[in-house]
């Protein structure tokens, strides 16, 4: 009866000046599980929560490596992410073949943005239903970008997309000022803590549902899944994988010392012996 007449295609404006198809695409991102990205002076990390359709099924891939210096985390329709990541891989290969140069992160991000924007402006096309966090290192250092189906791209110190990602963003906003100087492991831990805040009350981060990827200056992209995630979850601590943190934060906020509390916790967990070198033993 009161059907929306302005969402049949992506070329029709509503009387309020909205393109509903594009807005629906942005909604599709929120249907996907959360992904978090964050950056230090030397590294970029992606941390994502994988979902399985049923208890007995496998988990859907959330992080796609593009090249030795580049990877993406997705939230939304994974087939659309496949299209975009295949395209990024092509760009990456072309750059290496033609110039022997790893493709600059901003260039490849701009390329998918242009590709996505076209879809919002042609009848018969639809916007991509996926958001991406792109982590990469190039001549100008480590970079973290967010890509949206609208064709919008934004560079971030820390970003989160997907279901309940506002909680992760809240964590990042509170702690991002310390990110530039943290170690590789600490960066991942901050990512895991942000991701943990997106969990529902009865869920926790496990080796099955957590996916991690890190890339740094002079250090190739490395992805951690399954048992290899354990070391990071152990650093997070016994309690840390649980999702009561959001509640804890709320009470801490009332006291006014939430962020400090967190940093102490981290320092204790890491200990003096923990550093980048310890990572090399994992593979």
């Amino acid at each position: 009866m009161f059907r929306n007449n302005y969402d049949n295609d992506s070329v029709t404006f509503s009387p309020q000046g909205r393109i509903f198809q594009v807005e629906y695409a942005l909604e599709a991102i929120k249907q996907g599980s959360a992904a978090v990205g964050l950056r230090s002076k030397t590294h970029v990390a992606l941390v994502a929560l994988k979902r399985n359709a049923e208890e007995l099924g496998s988990y859907q891939k959330k992080i796609i490596p593009i090249d030795k210096h580049l990877g993406v985390a997705l939230a939304g329709l994974s087939p659309d992410a496949r299209v975009l990541s295949n395209f990024m891989r092509q760009q990456s290969m072309a750059s290496r073949l033609l110039y022997k140069r790893p493709v600059p992160v901003a260039r490849v991000v701009n390329a998918i943005a242009d590709k996505a924007q076209v879809n919002t402006q042609h009848y018969g096309k639809r916007p991509y239903g996926v958001g991406l966090l792109i982590a990469g290192v190039d001549e100008t250092g480590p970079h973290l970008w967010e890509f949206q189906p609208s064709g919008q791209i934004l560079e971030y110190f820390g970003a989160a997309i997907g279901a309940r990602s506002q909680s992760a963003r809240t964590y990042l906003e509170r702690s991002f000022e310390s990110f530039p100087d943290v170690s590789r492991d600490e960066l991942v831990l901050h990512g895991l803590k942000a991701l943990r805040d997106t969990l529902q009350q009865d869920r926790e981060l496990t080796t099955e549902n957590t996916s991690i990827a890190i890339v740094g200056i002079g250090e190739d992209l490395k992805q951690y899944d399954g048992p290899r995630v354990k070391r990071f979850l152990d650093l997070l601590g016994e309690d840390g994988t649980r999702s009561q943190r959001a509640a804890r934060l709320d009470t801490a906020m009332d006291v006014g010392g939430g962020a400090d509390d967190d940093d102490d916790e981290l320092a204790g967990l890491l200990g003096p012996g923990e550093g980048t070198s310890a990572m090399d033993t994992t593979e």
């Binding site: 033609l98 110039y99 022997k100 140069r101 600059p104 901003a106 260039r107 701009n110 190039d138 001549e139 100008t140």
Partner: peptide
């Protein structure tokens, strides 16, 4: 693109 990336001799030679 007007970013900080440029083609230098190794890239030009490869091209």
């Amino acid at each position: 693109p007007a970013d900080d990336h440029q083609l230098y001799a190794p890239q030009v030679h490869t091209y």
